[in-house]
Design a protein around this nucleic acid. Structure first.
Lengths: 340, 340
DNA sequence: TTGTACGCGTTATCAC
DNA sequence: GTGATAACGCGTACAA
């Protein structure tokens, strides 16, 4: 094969061998700081390494050792959510914290199209990672399928439906939704609606279920509007729709803080005051919550901890542990502020 | 070497060979969809692949082909900024868009500690990527050094000082800062201060320089306060300090929207009204800007485009192009809203 | 059309 | 202590 680019070929052990005059075995021993190598040999090798600019090719080493000491993090969110949702960043940093401590390299892979999805699946099965953490997988996800087929250590953040054999760590969305809706009712709201989102995932479905639990007989399907994305825009559109359907609405549970922010901004253009005429609550305790006027009451999600636990699960599987069926649910907390 | 974990060994071409009865060469040809393979052989191989569950080991293939079709994205930001700055996400998606189209896999590497820094440098020089995009590199960055030493195709987003030979794409921070400060002055502000940040990087230094340019003789060093991070907290602390130093201040240029938001929230607790008593402007046109009350006037940064251009530069270098000295500056725009 | 043999850059296992 | 030599899993020139 012709060397079609003009870039200089990187030095290999072989170059160090011919430069230093010692054998490949000895060079390798020096490089890996092993015993049984003479001082002269060591010096000769080190000089040669410096001279030819040798840098170890870890990829080749991994081929031999059959492990990469790298773990993938797949982020599968639509464009707008990816940009707005601070939980993703926190999960990423939590995951990285644990892996970094164990001296594993975290490599993040973002899925932003079907093409990405296929390529990432290919990447994960290519032997580049020893394990994988997957955020917000979809039901018929080629990535989840690839991971399940290969049987590489994996953990989901969030609980994707209809995929078994892979452990997950998430929050109890239903209980949290029930709790915050209950307090909305306890403060005297009678006509309580919800802006739901992401019904194709457990988070969306369970938040709706919890809302329904809390309302019991008072649940009115007409006061539920559905928008696919956990986004600001869903909030403004959703609030407008709710007011159109039922002008006497006096409470709203938004499925995320971004949605709540959109809803509150929309309300500002109406004659309804928050929290006097209508109470609004959100979900996530993200940066959005603190930027609302008045400050948003919401559910705190331990995003950082989600990442940590998922990473720990993957690491333990790499060490041979067999994950139990089902998943781990982390506690959430209600942060009661001024919006309801 | 004992197979110390109980995980089933993944199938290799060799398994397919013994299952199908044809030779390794033929198996390889079927796998790569080449010509000169009989129908029977193809069928036999495909059946065997399905039966043993063979999946190609791309890592091994790369060792042979000497290319990975993967490109690294190094994000080097402190914790809080990583979580708050939406530009990072936009740059990431922009980069991914271009690479995805060229069928390259983007792998993101976050640097959150010195340990990460060393490991990422090691990773980049390990032969896992054909090129790298680096966001907000530091001057004495081991990562930038490693990349420069190896000579792998690279591009910076933002202009790190004292590193040459690697092209960069950024914005003209100085001109943008000059322009927005000029408009602050044009609206009648007389005592204008600045909350600067990140002076260890070009963005921070150049924004300060532009501010100084615009003020000319009116520049007062006493009205400049410095906080290391582009963060909300820097804004509240900085605003408090400015008011302490000079209660008659009537204009503030915050080095980022997050800082501006912190400053405006602090002002809400004082007797100074925005924009009546004091004008505030920011930088980035991030989500922060829209959450300010009143809406923040700021500088729009084409983050998505920064990522695209950096990716394009790396791709062209992979194809043999030699990058010119210096970098590319993208245009910014002032978004004039209500805060000044 | 198919099979064989070699090399990609490392590390590990042997004799010496 | 050191130096051959055999893997790791794959692609491919070359011979058949």
């Amino acid at each position: 094969m012709p060397n079609d680019d003009r870039r200089p070929r990187r030095a290999t052990i072989h170059d160090v061998v011919s430069e230093s005059g010692v054998s490949r075995g000895t060079v390798s021993r020096v490089l890996n700081d092993e015993r049984y190598v003479s001082a002269e040999a060591r010096i000769a090798v080190e000089a040669a390494v410096a001279k030819v600019g040798y840098v170890r090719n870890t990829a080749a080493r991994n081929l031999k050792s059959q492990r990469s000491r790298a773990i993938g993090l797949v982020v599968h969110e639509p464009h707008s959510v990816f940009l707005e949702d601070p939980n993703i960043g926190a999960i990423l940093l939590g995951t990285n914290t644990v892996l970094s401590e164990a001296d594993y390299q975290l490599v993040s892979l973002v899925v932003d199209s079907d093409r990405d999805s296929a390529r990432v699946a290919e990447y994960l099965s290519g032997g580049f990672v020893d394990g994988v953490v997957i955020i917000s997988a979809r039901a018929a996800d080629p990535i989840a399928r690839a991971v399940a087929k290969l049987g590489i250590p994996a953990a989901f953040v969030g609980h994707p439906p209809e995929i078994s054999g892979i452990p997950w760590v998430g929050i109890d969305n239903r209980a949290a939704a029930r709790a915050i809706t209950a307090r909305l009712i306890a403060t005297g709201r009678r006509r309580v609606g919800m802006i739901v989102s992401a019904l194709d995932r457990d988070s969306g479905r369970d938040r709706l279920a919890g809302f329904r639990d809390a309302l019991g007989d008072a649940f009115d399907p007409g006061l539920v509007v559905d928008y696919p994305l956990y986004a600001y825009r869903s909030g403004s559109d959703g609030m407008a729709e709710l007011l159109r359907r039922s002008p006497d609405i006096d409470g709203v549970f938004a499925a995320s803080d971004a949605i709540a922010a959109g809803a509150m901004d929309w309300l500002r253009g109406t004659n309804k005051a928050v929290p006097l005429d209508i109470g609004v609550v959100g979900f996530d305790d993200s940066a959005w919550a603190l930027r609302c006027q008045p400050l948003l009451s919401t559910v705190r999600q331990p995003a950082d901890e989600l990442g940590r636990r998922a990473a720990e699960s993957v690491l333990s599987q790499i060490q041979g542990a067999v994950p139990g069926e089902g998943g781990i649910m982390l506690d959430t907390a209600i942060v009661w502020r001024d919006s309801a």
